[in-house]
Design a protein around this nucleic acid. Structure first.
Length: 761
DNA sequence: CAGGGTCACT
DNA sequence: AGTGACC
């Protein structure tokens, strides 16, 4: 798109002088990419340039390039109409958003080089608060440079004259130069064109950016604020006033901007309440005090599909699994762990105007293995949750007609940085030679910390016929920077997949974004093991001693009794003893660091004997979450309402030991399998299926495991009855738990009560 | 009304 | 947790 590269020709519309004065206002730049999806498609396939191009989703042209617009094709036009207007229109499918999403984040990251205050608005718009940058530039700008001819880049809204003696004018003008730099950078580095608007708030910056399209920029000076906002022909054009608000305003007879400006506040307040009333009336006057809030990484990851009809459970499952697997790939790349899962549906109804979506959500049990992306063990577990959510909305026995499914991972929190089998790396006694650097190449002139990351994921998104030439070009691969702490020699000797994992690891930030509203990572994680000193130790001692210490300290283990590492086909078993929990360890018992088993062994255990460990203490972690200091500050336990926790145990046949604590606000789940005769669920159930048992709060697990076998069985049978439907903790379950509590307090220690085995309390 | 997001309110 | 409103 070589429309008018107006950053090349600065200052084409500047002028003389005027007044002075003005408050210390912000300088906000709004960047709006030109027909974003179409642009991305043209970058991916340059053959499409110069051809009329439409991006298709379902039967709609969601956007098209300017070539197509010449024919009258427009956004959100039906395919049929578009083809009528422009028979030569080239259509590409835009249903897989991956390329757009990736380009979008590249753009945002680029903008973050100018200022940390970058707020995304959809995939193709960004606000940047450049106030500080502008003031910095202004400080070192000689007065001789402050002539209108060179100060402003691009257009001035309303042909207003710039007064270089007016501070506000000067600042906005300098902002225009920043905007020009930003656009130049977007074009030079990413090949993207777009419009920019510069003004003293977000609302006005957004409005003004659209006044000269495409690929141009415009500034708005204070004297034209009113003109700008009043140029809108309807209140619905005001960003921030959407469909619903528009309708309500219209019902009050308010449809022009001026109507809203002059409407007595009380009327608005009556209709909308104070906060919305104030906000929309301010907006109608061009005022907007909202800050540019750094968007940071996404708060949720979701995928959806819409269709004409979906009316069988099988279909639902198939589609859900599709969505889920795509999501898992994205989630894996992201690195954070979702703690909430949401399912949204849209049901067909004859009066289905548009959007009647409903959703159900639930906490994600933290025992889920988020280790390997799609195909992970997470799929069946999450599918189970999803179907339960589904059944909360739809009675499966009764006919239904869905037109949309959406699966969403939200409440994303930083995970422990090591996501895959760390033991795999640690047990690679012989590191591969230096010639094994397949997918990972050092870039041309790069400093030794920049790498291209081989992208072997994605692309497999649904109904796209996998084109043979879809291998990504090297230059398109993401460039990643290794943290300084890493020793490059050690790094280069690592096997390919380890390198990739490190590069993919969430502790390797490409650009730091919003402070992780979750907790700080406990350490650099896997990277710790590859720092120079650690690596040296490793080679000297055959890797045992220092590794053990590293692992231990990383886990927050202060005293190691027993330490083994073994590799079980891409998932690892760990057993380690810890006597005391280091107070600084925020994540004592969760399974992300160690894929298979990470268990907590009481100091009483005979730590020399593996079988003792496996048999006797496999469920030991059950006791842990109930001691409050362990839960303190643990982000896994959302509310730290430890006293409300209920322990549950689920046993899977045939698994190797796998213990883990998964708390949620209402309960605490332990999924583990026990091979020992100690708590042999198999003899109880004999179906080999999953069994779940509730361990009431009052039960001290230490005591429990000392009970005679029959007693344990009997107790578990009783608890199990309390707990059939429990993966999604619902009101029913809580009521059951409460009723159990009630019963228990009524008959504390009856002579025949099994509860006599437990301490009163 | 496509596919994705965010945030606020209850 | 669920919905609504916005882009």
């Amino acid at each position: 798109m070589e429309e008018e590269e107006d950053w090349m020709c600065p200052g084409d519309s500047p002028r003389a002088l005027g007044r002075s004065g003005g408050a210390v206002n912000k300088v906000i730049v709004h960047i709006d990419m030109d027909c974003f999806y179409a642009q991305v498609e043209m970058i991916r396939n340059p053959d499409l340039k110069n051809k009329p191009l439409g991006v298709q989703q379902k039967y709609i042209v969601v956007t098209c390039n300017y070539e197509a617009r010449k024919f009258g094709v427009n956004k959100l036009m039906s395919i049929r109409e578009a083809k009528e207007k422009c028979p030569q229109l080239v259509l590409v499918s835009g249903e897989d958003l991956t390329p757009y999403r990736e380009m979008s984040y590249k753009a945002t990251e680029l903008l973050e080089e100018f200022s940390p205050k970058v707020e995304r608005l959809g995939f193709d718009e960004n606000f940047i608060d450049v106030t500080e940058l502008v003031d910095k530039k202004l400080q070192k700008m000689p007065w001789s440079d402050r002539n209108p001819e060179s100060l402003v880049s691009g257009h001035v809204y309303n042909e207003q004259k710039v007064d270089v003696n007016d501070w506000a004018h000067t600042r906005i003008s300098v902002g225009s130069r920043v905007a020009a730099e930003i656009r130049a950078s977007l074009y030079n580095k990413l090949g993207l064109t777009g419009c920019a608007g510069v003004a003293s708030n977000k609302l006005l910056a957004k409005l003004v950016s659209g006044t000269h399209k495409p690929n141009q920029q415009t500034i708005l000076l204070p004297e034209s604020h009113s003109h700008m906002i009043n140029s809108l022909d309807h209140v619905k054009r005001i960003p921030g006033i959407g469909y619903k608000t528009t309708k309500r305003l219209e019902s009050l007879g308010l449809s022009r901007v001026n109507d809203l400006q002059t409407c007595p506040y009380m009327i608005l307040e009556k209709e909308f309440g104070g906060s919305i009333a104030q906000r929309i009336q301010m907006l109608s006057r061009g005022e907007d005090d909202s800050p540019v809030t750094p968007s940071g990484p996404p708060q949720s990851i979701s995928d959806e599909d819409s269709f004409k009809k979906c009316s069988t459970v099988t279909e639902v499952k198939t589609k859900m699994e599709e969505l889920l697997k795509n999501l898992l790939i994205r989630q894996y790349k992201d690195g954070r762990i979702p703690h909430t899962l949401r399912l949204t549906i849209r049901q067909f109804s004859p009066t289905n105007k548009w959007f009647n979506r409903e959703s159900r959500q639930c906490p994600v049990p933290s025992h889920i293995n988020w280790t390997v992306g799609a195909e992970s063990e997470a799929v069946p577990a999450l599918m189970g949750l999803l179907m339960r959510l589904f059944e909360k909305m739809i009675n499966v026995k009764t006919p239904f007609h869905l037109t949309l499914l959406n699966v969403c991972f939200c409440n994303l929190k930083a995970s422990n940085p090591t996501r895959r089998s760390i033991g795999f790396y640690l047990t690679q006694k012989a590191m591969p030679g230096p010639n094994q650097q397949d997918g990972l190449m050092e870039t041309e002139k790069n400093t030794r910390h920049d790498f291209r990351l081989k992208d072997n994921s994605s692309q497999q998104s649904n109904n796209q016929p996998a084109s043979p030439g879809s291998v990504k070009k090297y230059s398109e691969l993401p460039l990643v920077r290794l943290p300084e702490g890493i020793d490059m020699e050690v790094f280069q000797q690592l096997p390919e997949d380890i390198k990739q994992e490190i590069l993919m690891s969430p502790v390797v930030p490409t650009a730091p974004r919003r402070e992780p509203n979750s907790q700080a990572l406990p350490s650099k994680g896997i990277l710790n093991f590859f720092s120079k000193s650690k690596a040296d130790d490793h080679s000297k001692h055959g890797g045992d001693c220092s590794l053990e210490k590293s692992m231990a300290s990383f886990m927050g283990v202060t005293k190691v009794h027993h330490f083994t590492v073994s590799d079980c086909s891409d998932s690892v078993s760990y057993s380690t003893c810890k006597e005391t929990q280091s107070p600084s360890c925020k994540r004592p018992l969760n399974g992300h660091l160690f894929t298979k088993a990470k268990i907590d062994i009481p100091s009483t255990c005979s730590h020399e004997d593996n079988s003792v460990l496996d048999n006797k203490y496999s469920l030991a972690p059950l006791t842990k979450p109930r001691s409050s200091h362990v839960c303190e500050g643990t982000d896994d336990i959302d509310s730290c309402s430890v006293t409300k926790l209920t322990n549950r145990c689920r046993c899977d046949k045939g698994d190797s030991m796998n213990s883990n604590v998964s708390p949620s606000t209402s309960h605490c789940t332990v999924h583990g399998s026990v091979q020992s005769p100690h708590v042999d669920m198999e003899s109880q159930v004999n179906k080999g299926g999953d069994q779940e048992v509730s361990f009431p709060n009052s039960v001290d697990m230490n005591v429990f495991f000392q009970l005679p076998e029959e007693v344990k069985r009997e107790l578990m049978a009783e608890w199990r009855q309390l707990d059939h439907k429990s993966k999604i903790p619902g009101k029913k379950q809580m009521e059951k738990a409460k009723s159990f509590q009630a019963r228990k307090t009524k008959t504390p220690t009856g002579p025949n009560s099994l509860l006599k085995y437990f301490k009163p309390n």
